[in-house]
Amino acid sequence: MSYLNDQPAGILVLGYGNPLCTDDAVGWHVVEALEGRLPDGSTATFHQLTPEWAEPISAARHVIFVDAAVDGVPGEVHCFPIAAAAGRPGSHETTPDGLLSMAGDLFGRCPPAHMVTIAGDSFEISESLTPAVAAAVPLAVAQIYELIEQLNIAETPPMA
């Protein structure tokens, strides 16, 4: 997805984390598994959430954030709605609720959003997921696909 693409997305699925830190990469794996099943420009993977995502988020009909969770039983998948909240930015990263807030404040629209988390087992240096987390990828993909079908928004144009 292009930051500067003027074509707004219906659904926007964002997977993020460090792909060199074992299960921190699970957001990438989940989103890459969704690619080809969603319209072009509906998915993106990156290392960190940065303020630059506020604009594309504001243009989306619905946003799904996919990230590894530090706590929980490894491989456990959770999907829950999230709302805008004042974020606590680091030097160059922010939070999903903070980005939603910024999308509303700066670009005039805060779309509804969900968070999908997959509990990780290891965050050490490795390019492979642990077995439990790798096994959870299809489950997370299925949950996201189900959510999108329920919302019936994949092809729906965004609200004005």
């Binding site: 292009s2 930051y3 500067l4 940065t50 303020p51 630059e52 506020a54 604009e55 004042a86 974020g87 606590r88 930015p89 922010t94 903070g98 807030s101 910024m102 404040d105 700066l106 670009f107």
Partner: peptide, 28 residues
């Protein structure tokens, strides 16, 4: 922080976001 800037001077914050996007998009 940048959220405070966005609240106080939204146009300045937007310029910052846009310019960083532009640099990154050019790299991409």
């Amino acid at each position: 922080n940048i959220f405070g800037v966005a609240a106080e001077m939204p146009d300045l914050a937007k310029d910052g976001i846009w310019l960083r996007q532009y640099g990154q998009e050019t790299i991409a």
